[in-house]
Computed example of a mutant assay.
Amino acid sequence: MLFSCPLCHHPLAQVKNSFICPQRHQFDVAKEGYVNLLPVQHKRSRDPGDSAEMMQARRAFLDAGHYQPLRDAIVNILNERLSSHATSVLDIGCGEGYYTHAFADAQPGITVFGLDVAKVAIKSAAKRYPQVTFCVASSHRLPFADASMDAIIRIYAPCKAEELARVVKPGGWVITATPGPRHLMELKGLIYDEIRLHAPHTEQIDGFTLQQSVALNYPMSLSGSEAVALLQMTPFAWRAKPDVWEALSARDVFDCQTDFSLHLWQRDS
């Protein structure tokens, strides 16, 4: 197992239904099959991450297939770029596992890990997708051994560059998905008086070379309930006034465009 102790960073070994390090720190496997590697001293709140309501809204929206082209694009990149000797892939900020399980299904000989800070999301993911190894953990303190991952996927997820460089194998990959300039413009137009385009991609990841950039955009036609679910899973939800929620839920159809930016980074040898 590739897990490392979040307290002392020594390797974790699985003993029956627990993971134990040489310093005797112990982390039990939950009945759903995931392991919680987020010590209380690393939490910023009692229940960090998305709430159950946010997670359920995202699951309903994603299960309807509206972001499947994004998922398929990342699966294709993994199929093209992973070497025949690849053994492990990590999805950071995996939420309820919509993307993660597709990565596992596309790479049956590879161990796929899903990591999220939200316990409610990981609990739900582990119950639904037993083919993935899920853990509750911080994306800023990855509980994995050095040079253990052939690829890491970050869909809107934050992570420290030094942690990516530590965990990804030389020659391995980081795939990021971020909002393109015109992502969800129609939704933003309901909330902001002045619509600002998302800033162009300027990220640099120390220790990695950018090998490919892909723009992915397409229109969506949503029902009122789907539009509400979409709003609930975005940062715009905090700014939306009650009349915006009411207007969206009353819509028969809400047309909205997507605009994703995919970037493929290779770890320097």
Rank of each mutant, 00 (worst) to 15 (best):
A165K: 12
D91M: 05
C159Y: 00
I175Y: 00
A165V: 09
V136A: 04
L82S: 11
A145D: 14
D72Q: 14
I74L: 13
A157Q: 07
P179D: 08
L90V: 05
K119T: 15
I175T: 02
P130R: 08
D72R: 12
H85W: 10
Y98R: 01
V167W: 01
Y99D: 01
A106K: 06
E80Q: 15
D72K: 08
T87R: 15
G114E: 01
Q131T: 11
S148I: 00
A73W: 08
S138R: 02
V136Y: 04
E80S: 14
L184I: 10
T133R: 14
R154S: 07
T87S: 15
R71V: 12
R81Y: 04
Y99M: 07
M149L: 13
I155C: 07
E80V: 07
A86R: 06
D150Y: 07
S83I: 09
F144E: 00
D91V: 04
L70W: 10
M149T: 08
R154F: 02
A126R: 01
A125G: 03
P158Y: 03
G172H: 06
A137L: 07
E96N: 03
S124A: 15
I92W: 02
T178N: 12
V89N: 03
Q68W: 09
Y99S: 05
A137Q: 04
R182W: 10
T100A: 05
F134Y: 15
F144N: 00
I92M: 11
N76L: 13
I122T: 04
V174Y: 02
D150W: 03
A137C: 11
P108L: 09
S138E: 05
A145L: 09
S138G: 08
E163A: 03
I74N: 04
T87G: 13
P143Y: 03
S88Y: 06
H183K: 04
I74T: 11
